[in-house]
Write a protein that binds this DNA or RNA. Structure first.
Lengths: 93, 93
DNA sequence: ATACTATTTAGATACTTGTCTAAATATCTA
DNA sequence: TAGATATTTAGACAAGTATCTAAATAGTAT
């Protein structure tokens, strides 16, 4: 299920920080890395999680792989979440 | 961090299904339970997670404990999420 | 081709989470 | 008070996740 991947991806502080960085501009892995104290393989693992959740996309530029936010997907998620909770107002028991 | 709890709570399908049920109406634990195949202690554990994330609240009615959605919190979250991704539009590298 | 830079994959380990059974707590009713 | 119902807590275990080091892959440059 897609929502699973999305929320799981968002439930980790490291990954949310990555997203915040990418919000400002697209970045290659090594520039993302300077913001964290974890190893490159660990970072790579988080990036894969974000990619599987379709929250980021990649593009090779020579030796580097540039990560960027999938903004359209985020809009969908926010909307989905909004609808999830605001359609069919809750009735008291 | 509060966002952690929120996304962690939302990242499990059982918990999302609980929220969907509570969206229709407030329910005691035993009525929530009939919708799942897990034991009561497991369900209770999920309910605690949702409560810690401030997504639901409880109220005792005799022997039963009635769970209900915290709708206002959901609106906040949806808004927060929307802002998280739509303020400061991403710039290309 | 060889060396160098950038990133990912593989395999191991520690931590976290979801589930269970058994026991405890709280309320109601006879 | 004793018994029944509703829910949570405690403790154990299996499965999932984050992290690491070492090795592999991909591209660039000499």
């Amino acid at each position: 299920m897609t929502l699973n991947n999305t929320f799981t991806a968002l439930s980790d502080p490291t990954r949310r920080k990555i997203l915040q960085l990418l919000k400002k501009k697209d970045l290659p892995v090594n520039e993302i890395a300077v913001n964290f104290e974890i190893t490159l393989p660990s970072l790579s693992h988080h990036l894969t999680t974000l990619k599987n959740a379709n929250l980021v996309s990649t593009q090779r530029m020579g030796q580097q792989i540039i990560y960027s936010l999938n903004l359209s997907v985020f809009e969908e998620i926010a909307e989905e979440l909004y609808n999830f909770f605001n359609k069919n107002k809750a009735k008291k028991l």
